[in-house]
Amino acid sequence: MVTHAFIELLKQFFSDPATNLFPVPYAPQNVHKALKAIDSGKVKMISPVEVPDGFRGKILYDREACIGCQMCLKVCPSETIEFVPEGRKVKFYMSRCTFCALCTEICPKKCIKMSKDFLMANTDKYGPDMIVLDSGKFVQEEKKETPKPEKETDSEKPQPKATA
């Protein structure tokens, strides 16, 4: 009995598989050794699928620009952000972050932003990679650059309204 499913399956049989084999084609016996091999260049890593602009990944924090207003603490749903009274700065525990990006929007100085980095798996949730203290000065740099044209949206232009 030839069903539609059979036909579709046979089509798939003769086309390329849909999977992206990240990071290596077959599960390695020892993940850490495989990662080391990738780092040393012995094994070529198959890169993950590209993420679009506006992806919410690991937090970037411009420590210098921060004024310590603590608004981000008020909106953070998961207590990711800890206030450090010395210097009136904050630090971010990425293992708790829910990537809602509310802190980036409420920050009056825009000194928090989200990178495209999503490979954050770690065995130690308080490890150096999992706490964001300072990721360089990006607020000033961005100001120095000529202001990029905003993504063109059609919200300003008149649009045909919904017709009845």
């Binding site: 399956l9 046979l10 798939q12 049989f13 086309s15 598989p17 849909a18 999977t19 084999l21 084609p25």
Partner: peptide, 9 residues
Amino acid sequence: FAAWLQARY
């Protein structure tokens, strides 16, 4: 072969 039919590796 089953994997290929299902668009997997």
